[in-house]
């Protein structure tokens, strides 16, 4: 029973990782990594902590993750049948789907008009946020730890007190003519 539970959990995690990796792709953790397809260099949403974020209570999706994973795999099976893609056995169907097909399936699930669009967009939004903002960590800590998303974007670190200040911020000169109808208070006429 316990072993079955942990198998289910591993399958769920791998499926969610594959989804996150489709949203923001990254490099494989090991040569035989299946959840991460290795479609891009550097860490992607998985390395950024997408699954950890989804499992936290704050986003409000944790209770639905089993359902999300099952749904993804059901869609992947249907997609594979439709496109004649042979899925490797022993893997969750979405994980077994080649990267370009995962991408096409996610595009379909999140497109206007798909009946399940809202749910898949929600999952994608949090996967994106895991990469772009690391909202499961203190931002200063995430930067100090080399969070792959913030590092990829070149997000500048804070000062020693954990706050951001930019002393140099302006080219310091007039760079355009003002609109001729500007009022004395600086508004449009």
């Amino acid at each position: 029973m316990r072993s079955g539970d942990s198998d289910d959990r591993r399958s769920r995690t791998a499926t969610l990782e594959s989804f996150a990796d489709t949203i923001v792709p990254g490099e494989k953790r090991t040569p035989d990594d299946r959840a991460i397809a290795g479609a891009a260099t550097g860490g992607g949403a998985v390395a950024a902590g997408a699954v950890e974020l989804l499992e936290q209570p704050a986003p409000g999706l944790a209770a639905g993750l089993d359902h999300y994973a099952a749904g993804l795999n059901a869609h992947a099976e249907a997609y594979a049948a439709e496109h004649g893609v042979d899925l490797e056995t022993g893997l969750p169907a979405f994980v077994a789907l080649p990267f370009e097909h995962r991408t096409a399936l996610v595009a379909r699930l999140t497109a206007p008009g798909h009946p399940e669009k809202d749910g898949w967009v929600l999952l994608a939004l949090f996967c994106t946020m895991a990469f772009d903002t690391a909202p499961h960590m203190r931002t200063a800590d995430a930067l100090a730890a080399g969070h792959p998303g913030l590092a990829t974007m070149g997000f500048a670190p804070p000062q020693a007190d954990g706050l951001w200040r930019f002393g140099e911020f302006s080219y310091g000169r007039q760079l355009a003519d003002l609109h001729p109808a500007t009022t004395p208070s600086g508004s449009p006429a």
Partner: peptide, 27 residues
């Protein structure tokens, strides 16, 4: 004032000027 305008605002102003448009610091 233009000395209050950030790099991003300055870039937008300079691009507008280059394209023959005006640009204003916003109250």
């Amino acid at each position: 004032d233009w000395s209050d305008v950030t790099y991003a605002g300055g870039l937008w102003a300079a691009a507008c000027h280059h394209a023959g448009r005006t640009a204003n610091p916003v109250p």
